[in-house]
Simulated scan of single mutants.
Amino acid sequence: MPADTITLGNVEITRVVEWSGPVRTARFVIPGSDEHTWRRNQEWLEPDFWTAADDAYHCRIQTWVLRSEGRTILVDTGVGNDRERPQVPQFAGLKTDFPDRLRAAGVAPEDVDVVVNTHIHYDHVGWNTELRDGEWVPAFPNATYLIPRADNAYFDPQGPGRGRAPRDDHERVRWEGSKLVFDDSIAPVHRSGQAVLWEGAHRIDCNLLLEAAPGHTPGSSVLTLRSGTDRAVFVGDMLHSPVQVLEPAWNSCFCDDLTLAARTRASYLSRAAELRELVIPAHWPGHGAAEIRQDGDTFAIAAWAGFPRG
């Protein structure tokens, strides 16, 4: 069993990291946050999630590999290689060994049965595809790709969400970047007939259920795991940092609907605390996931997951 693996009930979960490091400053990524909260929690936020000296936010781009009922399921697929990303130059033209890391975790491309994209952002759909002979093709030839219908409509360059012309240079770069993401990471799996659009809820098997959790994007979703007495929820970008557990009203700078994103976050944190679900965000370094407890009117970290800090 790979070192970065835990088992919940009958489901094996392995973390495969594509990229790790600092991105911008903490208060750029979580713009509503205040310096006092970061420094008050410096002892446990540093160095995994934040460094005080430069106010750097630390994250990982990673894929969660689930083995459930005899099938291999990937939750989110990172940035990918060879991409144009004008909105995030740091991730343009990557040349990582992510496929080799998947193989080291025991996953060959043809072994993947299901790919879950929790939402359509560049760092969650990139390895949906790879570039072969100048053409983007699905990276996992036997997989079904589960894509939230609401995000598909919103990010499709031909869809109703893209109809208005960009208002300024910042919005133009973001719009052009979204079009590139759709064209190189989503459209090819539609063309191959491997994409399945879902809305509301979608059951993968008796252990795994996809649920709509909008706010970060219109189609953002969570994957709930319930197996035996064990519970977990893969929350995608609902939580970019553990400080959002302490202050659920704080959104990331990437959230689309700020009011809805905060409401959704508080709701799922409340459920996780009540049901003792392990909360597994997309981008946390360190132990990667945590159990949550109620702490008065807010929440706190009760315990870290069993993944090595790495």
Score class of each variant (00 low, 15 high):
A165W: 05
R276Y: 14
W136D: 05
W50V: 01
F140R: 09
R293H: 13
W175H: 06
S267C: 03
R39I: 10
E69C: 08
T224S: 11
A56P: 07
V116C: 07
W44K: 10
A249T: 06
R164P: 08
G288D: 09
R67C: 10
L278P: 00
G306I: 05
T224W: 11
P218H: 12
H124I: 11
G193L: 11
E135P: 07
N81I: 03
R149N: 03
S267R: 14
F182S: 00
P285R: 13
D237K: 01
A52P: 07
T96E: 04
F182L: 03
S270K: 09
F49I: 11
I292R: 01
E176Q: 05
E274C: 13
T217M: 10
M238D: 07
L208E: 01
A165K: 11
P138E: 03
S227L: 08
I120G: 03
A139T: 10
V233I: 14
T229H: 13
W198Y: 09
E18D: 15
S270M: 15
A290P: 00
D76K: 06
A266M: 12
S241Q: 02
S227V: 13
A53R: 13
R203S: 04
W50H: 02
A26G: 05
G163Q: 05
Q90N: 09
N81M: 07
W44H: 07
T37N: 08
G126P: 01
E35F: 09
Q87A: 05
A150D: 02
G200Q: 06
N41Q: 11
A212I: 13
W44S: 06
D97C: 13
C59Q: 08
P281Y: 00
A232V: 08
V181F: 09
G78N: 04
W64R: 15
P109G: 06
L66S: 04
D4R: 04
A105T: 12
V79I: 13
F234V: 03
N128V: 13
